[in-house]
């Protein structure tokens, strides 16, 4: 399927580049429907990867790339089941999103996350599956999971460890602070900075440049450079699910859902 227009995301193959647009109100929170549509994309990718040379993932929402997992949806579902019974459903969700992430991570296409605004939690993890992260100067990156009594669950820690120094990972994870795009570029997370509102344009320039290279050679180079940390990814799911059964998570999620705090996204 060369084009798809969904509830939470859409894609289009144009001039050899797939553009995957996220557009779920208000800030691309990743819940069940987004996961289903990401799975549609993964199915389509089996064909599209033979026709394209690049993939750009970007957001059409004003507030940013993605605020992360849909915590309200997670809280509501866990509350219905009872938190003590919700672990199998959480594990199933994580297993499914890890399949999606691993397919994009290992895609023979060169992949670019074009990020603006908030890029938090699960949204940050989605960006991390891409080969390159380009950022608008107003972008911010954050792993706020510890405030919920959790760790990132969509593969964020193993991928960040793969790509950056452990000290940077500890800083982001253990303080839960958000960093701006300039800092993210300084630590090696962001490869290119764009002016405000220009990140998609900048990503398209690069995607256009990639057309000059032999697709098979680019794929071989990527496979050599970017091994998928499967063992750590599986371990991450286990740790996440183990933590999910602790009382701190229910309390943290309830606090988030009921919060009228001015900065509920932050620890």
């Amino acid at each position: 399927m060369q084009t798809y227009k969904g509830d939470t995301l859409s894609w289009e193959l144009k001039d050899g580049c797939i553009e995957l647009a996220l557009h779920r109100e208000p800030a691309n929170e990743i819940g069940t429907r987004t996961l289903e549509e990401l799975e549609f994309f993964v199915d389509a990718h089996e064909t599209l990867k033979h026709e394209a040379h690049a993939l750009i993932i970007y957001s059409q929402m004003k507030h940013g790339f993605s605020a992360g997992a849909d915590l309200r949806d997670l809280y509501t579902q866990a509350k219905e089941l009872g938190f003590e019974n919700a672990e199998p459903r959480v594990r199933d969700f994580l297993n499914r999103i890890h399949v999606v992430a691993n397919v994009i991570d290992a895609s023979p296409l060169t992949t670019i996350a074009a990020v603006h605004g908030v890029c938090f939690g699960g949204g940050f993890e989605l960006a991390l599956v891409c080969d390159l992260i380009f950022a608008d100067k107003m972008a911010r990156f954050c792993f706020p999971e510890l405030r919920l009594g959790l760790i990132p669950g969509f593969g964020g820690i193993p991928r960040l460890k793969r790509d950056l120094g452990n000290a940077v990972v500890r800083d982001l994870l253990l303080t839960g602070r958000s960093i701006n795009a300039t800092k993210a570029q300084a630590v090696g997370l962001v490869s290119q900075l764009a002016a405000e509102g220009e990140v998609l344009k900048v990503a398209r320039f690069t995607a256009s440049q990639l057309k000059k290279f032999d697709r098979a050679t680019s794929a071989v180079a990527k496979q050599f450079l970017k091994p998928i940390p499967h063992a750590e990814l599986r371990q991450e799911i286990d740790i996440f699910c183990d933590l999910f059964t602790k009382p701190a998570v229910e309390a943290g999620l309830r606090k988030f859902v009921e919060s009228t705090d001015a900065l509920p996204y932050l620890p």
Partner: peptide
């Protein structure tokens, strides 16, 4: 709101 406050922080 909170997301706009983050924008102010970045600026």
């Amino acid at each position: 709101d909170s997301l706009q406050a983050l924008g102010l922080l970045t600026r």
